[in-house]
Nucleic acid binder design. Structure first.
Lengths: 350, 350
DNA sequence: ACGGTTTCTGAAAGCGCTTTCAGATAGCCA
DNA sequence: TGGCTATCTGAAAGCGCTTTCAGAAACCGT
C-alpha cells in the first residue's frame, strides 16, 4: 500500500530521444527540434502531434547534445570565497534568481580565499563550458583572466569596483570611511578596527585603508595596536577585541569587518564590564539578520547583496545575449544607525 | 601601465579543439583523447608531444562534447528548500567537497519549501543531464520520483530517513523526543514548541510529533496553545513566543525549530522580564555558530550537517560508479547541553 | 632473419541535437 | 486550371569528443 516499488520505472530501456518523438509523431527530428525550440513556422497539426508525442514519451532533450550543437551551455559559473558566508550566499541567491528567469543554470564553486584554489575552481567551471562567470573581488590569480578570455566568455566581478574589468559593487574604502567619519563626528578619537583576513582579499584591505585615510584626514590615526586582523567569526571577534585591549589605551569605538566579529567583540566587551555603547561604540558590516536583535542593536554597514546579485546577473545575461552594458555598476553600501554607537562617555581631547 | 587592454586575447579566433592538438603533435585525435584521459598504452614520446601541444594551445576539452560522447555529465544536482539556511549550506558545502574530489560538479538549486517549485527545479537539473540528484526530506511532488527514474539516475534524500528511498539522515522525531525527555527529566511539565512552517516539511512535522508523543509517554501533553508554527527567523521566534504567552499559563520550557527561533524567543522572554533558564528553559536546533555565544549559551540539537553531506556524496558517487551501497545511513543528531536549560524554578505539580 | 605476438595508433562511427539547404506543399492570382 | 510565390518539411551535415576495430609497428624467441 505504500506505492509501487521503485524498480518499476528504473529499467526503462533508455530515455526517449528526439528520433523516438519524431517517429511517433510521424515527422522528422528537424521538425521536433523546431517545435520544441524556436518553433517558427510549423503547421499547427504537426506541432500538436509533436507536442503530444513528446508528452507521451516524457521526452526531455539531452542537454549535452544541445549544448554541443548550439555551442551555448546555458549555464553560468560563480566562484565565491566562502559559500557559508551570508553575504555571498545572498548574492548567489539573487544572482541565480535572475539567471533562472533567463533560462540559465548557476553553477557555484567555493574558493576559500585562496588564489590558486580560485583559479582551479574557475578552470573547472570553464571546462564545463559555462557561458559566463561571476567572480568576487579584484584580486585574482595572474593567469585567470587570460583563461577566461581564451574561452571567450564574459565575466563580471562583484563587491569591488574596478577600472579594468566589468564590475558590480561598491567602494569598500569609501563606505568604511563613512563609518569612521560618523564615529569621529560623534566625538570619538581612538578608533579601532577588527577585520577578517586580508590576504588576497581586497575588500577587507580596502576597508581598513579607507578607515585609516579617513582618520588621517581628520587629524587622527589608526594606531597599529588598534588594527587587528583575525579569522572570521564570533570567536575571532572576541579574541580580536581581547587582543586590542592588551595593546595600550583602549579605543572608544571599533569598526568590525562583519557583524559576527562585532557580535564577538561586544560579548568580550561585556565580559570585561564595558558598556556598549557607553564605553565602546561598535559598528559591523553586512547587516546580518541578527544585527537588529543584538543588545544593543548593532549599527552596521548594509551591503545590498540582493541588488548586487541582480545587477551582476543582468549584466552577464545582457552580454551573453550580445546586448550593450555599462562596465561599472555602483551599488552603494549604507550605514544603518542603531543603538551600538553613541558619543564617547567622556569626550577625549586629542 | 595598468596592463594590457582586455581585448588583446578576446578575439582569439576560436578556442582550440582536439584536432588542433592532434595536428600540432602529429597524431590523431584518438591519441589525444587517450593521452588526456584513460591514458592507457600510448608511447612515451607521443604522449609527451600531445601534452606539449595541449599545453601550448591552452587546450581545454569541450565538456558538452565529452558528456555527449561518454553519456556521463560528471555533475550532480541538489535541490534544497532554502539555500540561505545555514544547515543546508553546510550540507551542500560538504557534499560538494566529496563530489569535487571525485571529479563531479555540484549544481545546486533552491526550491523554497514548495513542492511544485521543487519539481520544477529538479526537472531543470535533470534536463541539464546531471548524473545524480540529492533531495532534502521525504515529501516530494508525486511526479518527481517517476521523472528521476525515467532518467535512470540515482538519487539520495537527506535529513529524513525513509524506508523506500536511499537516504542519509536522522530520526527527527526521535531526536526532538530526546530533547523533550531531557526537559521532563529536569522537572518541566509545561513544555512548548515553536517550529518553522511545517507544510511540505516532514522534518518540522516529525519533530513536533516526536515531542508530542514523548510528552504523552510521560503522561503529559503538548497543549495546542503551546504548539506554535511560525515562519523562520529571529523575528518569527519573538512573535511565536509572544503568541504562546498570550494563550494561557506560560510554559516553563520551549523547544524551537532552529537556533534563530530560539534566539528570538529568548529576546522576547528577556523583554518580558523572564529569566532564562530560571523562568524559561530554551532548546534550539542546528547548533548554529552563534549558539554558544548567546547569553545564556543555548542548549541545542546539533545536526551533523557536514557528515550528512559527506555521506550523501559518498553514497551517490558509489552508485554512479556502480558500486554497492547501503540504502539507509543514519547520522544521529546530538543534544548539546549548555546554559539555557535548567530545572524549573518552582517545580510544577502536574 | 623470420613468423608470431604484443603493443600502438588512426580511421571512422557514433553520441543526440540544431540548422542549413533544397525540394515538396500549399496558397494565390489571373 | 496553370504558374508563381510563400510556407513547410526532411535529409544530411555538422558540433567535438570517445571508443571500437583493424591494421601498422615494435618486439620476441629461435
Amino acid at each position: 500500500m505504500l506505492g509501487v516499488p521503485e524498480e518499476i520505472l528504473e529499467p526503462l530501456s533508455r530515455s526517449p530521444v528526439a528520433r523516438d518523438v519524431a517517429h511517433r509523431a510521424g515527422v522528422s527530428t528537424a521538425t521536433v527540434s523546431r517545435v520544441l525550440n524556436g518553433s517558427a513556422g510549423v503547421r499547427a497539426d504537426k506541432r500538436a502531434a509533436v507536442m503530444r508525442a513528446a508528452q507521451d514519451l516524457g521526452f526531455v532533450a539531452n542537454g549535452a547534445a544541445r549544448a554541443l550543437s548550439t555551442r551555448r551551455f546555458m549555464a553560468v559559473g560563480a566562484v565565491v570565497p566562502n559559500i557559508e558566508n551570508e553575504a555571498f550566499v545572498r548574492v548567489l541567491s539573487s544572482f541565480q534568481e535572475r539567471l533562472r528567469q533567463a533560462g540559465y543554470t548557476l553553477v557555484a564553486a567555493n574558493a576559500g580565499y585562496d588564489l590558486e584554489d580560485e583559479l582551479r575552481e574557475a578552470t573547472f567551471l570553464l571546462e564545463r563550458g559555462v557561458d559566463g562567470l561571476m567572480l568576487v573581488g579584484d584580486i585574482h590569480h595572474p593567469d585567470l583572466h587570460a583563461r577566461i578570455a581564451r574561452h571567450g566568455i564574459p565575466m563580471v566581478q562583484t563587491f569591488s569596483l574596478s577600472r579594468e574589468r566589468p564590475c558590480v559593487g561598491f567602494d569598500n574604502a569609501a563606505s568604511a570611511a563613512r563609518a569612521a567619519n560618523y564615529l569621529v563626528d560623534l566625538g570619538h578619537r581612538r578608533i579601532g578596527v577588527i577585520s577578517g583576513l586580508r590576504k588576497d582579499n581586497d575588500r577587507g584591505g580596502a576597508r581598513v585603508t579607507g578607515i585609516a585615510q579617513a582618520l588621517e584626514a581628520r587629524g587622527l590615526r589608526l594606531a597599529p595596536e588598534h588594527d587587528i586582523e583575525i579569522s572570521y567569526g564570533i570567536g575571532g571577534g572576541r579574541d580580536g577585541f581581547r587582543q586590542m585591549l592588551a595593546g595600550g589605551p583602549p579605543p572608544t569605538a571599533i569598526i568590525c569587518g562583519t557583524d559576527q566579529i562585532a557580535f564577538g567583540a561586544m560579548i568580550e566587551a561585556r565580559a570585561r564590564g564595558l558598556d556598549v555603547p557607553g564605553d565602546l561604540s561598535v559598528i559591523g558590516h553586512n547587516d546580518s539578520d541578527f544585527a537588529p536583535f543584538l543588545d544593543p542593536a548593532l549599527t552596521t554597514i548594509r551591503i545590498h547583496s540582493a541588488e548586487i546579485g541582480h545587477a551582476a546577473g543582468d549584466h552577464l545575461i545582457a552580454r551573453m545575449q550580445g546586448r550593450p552594458v555599462v562596465r561599472l555598476t555602483q551599488i552603494d553600501a549604507e550605514l544603518i544607525l542603531r543603538a551600538s554607537t553613541a558619543p564617547p562617555r567622556k569626550p577625549d581631547g586629542v
